[in-house]
Design a binder for these strands. Structure first.
Lengths: 205, 205
DNA sequence: CGCAAATTTTACCATTTGGTAAAGGCACGA
DNA sequence: TCGTGCCTTTACCAAATGGTAAAATTTGCG
């Protein structure tokens, strides 16, 4: 018999926790951790503030829950990178998946960016245990491709950094991009074309 | 005779305003606008809170002053890009200058990143009047180089975005980079080598 | 020096904000 | 239908925070 029975969550619990997290993603990604208030989250969720605190122990727990949930989604495109596939196709596929995510999940991108920007105070453990091993593994895969002569040799770590930077830029700096690309309606397609060219030319032997 | 005499600032005024701005750069870049408190800034500056408010009208004015001052420094590397120089040399020089700035002025980079990340609420005018014209001008220069066959043709706007993204990444995501590059002591040099290769290969016809 | 202006400190204040206590309402199985 | 336990609301609170008033002190200049 289980000592601490986790009690399967009720229908109402699932719905409300989900409402809260969705609202919190909106608010945290727009204002940052300190800039967000429980009142804002409560209003966005359509619940009262004490009710929010009935489902989560506090502001920080909401933030950490969001971060943990999103980590999986965030790393998925890199997990998908297949050591058995065609090297250039795999890398370009990774670029495209990351760019798609920046366009489809900009709030998530900004939430992470804000957290890292401030020194990852609530995410340091996850960087160490979740990201680092995956990063090292995929760097080794890319290095092996280069050693085998299938890709132009460059530093795999900085290659990955540049993929992250260029793709996430469109979500994290959207306010700037929007001003500079005003009157351009093919921005997303142009970005994909450009980045594909950029990394193709770098890596094609 | 001048209607509103701006009165040249005293020695004490120059020193204290400078102390405050230096302290505020530290605090704002680390915690964001909302996360920073006047008490923190006051302590970092070695002044009392009311004294801070003797020199600035409020928290927001300090932040805006910082942003305005830094704008010039921030745009300088792009201003320096010379339409009369050798195209590839000019672009690679721009990349190197931006990368140097990310290493030497990480606080400034993070301050801007945080502001843009939250939709540039206190900087929208400057983006429009300061950045946009310069951006358009330099895009035209690069486009002319490409039209003349001196560079491989790509979208100049996305080229500039990718230069910003890749260089600033080392300042803005330093917390992440540090975890992933632990035990690497040549990070700065490796980054410069990688980025030079990246943009050389893209743009060399 | 002597004194007016500039600077700094002390003592506050109003608002915002994360959080709590406890009463009330509601759902659902026996 | 009735009551038990889950859910929600009302009414708060203490701390933090941006900001102010005015007294006290220092600075610089004739």
């Amino acid at each position: 018999m289980p000592e601490d029975l986790p009690k399967k969550p009720s229908r109402i619990q699932r719905r409300n926790r989900s409402l809260i997290l969705e609202a919190a993603l909106d608010v945290f990604s727009q204002h940052g951790y300190r800039g967000a208030t429980l009142d804002q989250i409560a209003e966005a969720a359509g619940l009262s503030k004490p009710n929010i605190l009935y489902y989560f122990d506090g502001k920080e727990e909401i933030h950490v829950t969001l971060l943990n949930q999103l980590m999986e989604t965030w790393l998925d495109p890199l997990v998908t990178l297949d050591a058995g596939g065609d090297p250039l196709t795999e890398i370009l596929g990774y670029v495209r998946r990351k760019l798609d995510m920046a366009h489809e999940l900009p709030r998530e991108s900004r939430l992470f960016a804000g957290e890292i920007l401030q020194g990852a105070p609530r995410m340091a453990p996850h960087l160490e245990t979740g990201l680092k091993p995956l990063f090292d593994e995929k760097c080794a895969v890319i290095q092996a491709w280069m050693d085998a002569g299938h890709l132009t040799p460059v530093d795999p770590r900085h290659l990955i950094f540049s993929i992250w930077a260029t793709t996430q830029h469109y979500a994290d700096f959207a306010a700037q991009v929007q001003v500079l690309l005003r009157d351009t309606d093919s921005a997303q397609h142009d970005a994909e074309t450009y980045l594909t060219t950029l990394f193709s030319r770098l890596l094609t032997p």
